[in-house]
Amino acid sequence: MKKVDILMAGVGGQGTILASNILAEVGLELGYDVKKSEVHGMAQRGGTVESHVRWGEKVYAPLVEQGHADYLIGFEMLETARWPGYLKEGTVVIINRYRIPPPAVNLGKAKYPSEQEIEALLKGAGGRVIWIEGTGIAGELGNPAMVGVVLLGALSNLLGGEEETWLKVIQRLVPEKFLELNKKAFLSGKALQVA
């Protein structure tokens, strides 16, 4: 059984925790040993959120090791750019084209890096960068907060697993009244057919 190490990076309130929960449960459904770790103590206060999800025959540490990530899922551009140390040659980076400027940028005291700079950083570390309009797609469906499920839909093309398995887990973890929209969000992400 292949080892799959996935990192997710975003900003508090973007739904990274729900997405990583779905990813962990899907791993379990597919028969993997799974561990997941995140730091969310101060996440609600608009800080950085990171989540590690690991699938494997036997997983010890809940943390992805530097230079070992197979996938990096970026919910926000700047947050994605913080992780080159975790990439290796061929790491797939799915990055949501969306900016949430941090306070120093709002105050005009720092510059938000350009798309080109971010892409260069990630490519320089071996990343294969795939841009996705995740927040845009989720917004068109009615709620930009579903960006995580759109990204998972895209990722599912690469990770495999039956569509039913993913949708079953989404059904288990998403509140009833948001279920249909989230299923649509997942399928929209899957329809992007990233490869």
Partner: peptide
């Protein structure tokens, strides 16, 4: 692995903290 890459990336672009 990764430590050198991270160090190189950090010097290449200074990212604003959040």
């Amino acid at each position: 692995a990764g430590a050198e890459v991270a160090a190189a990336a950090a010097t290449a672009t200074e990212l604003p903290i959040r």
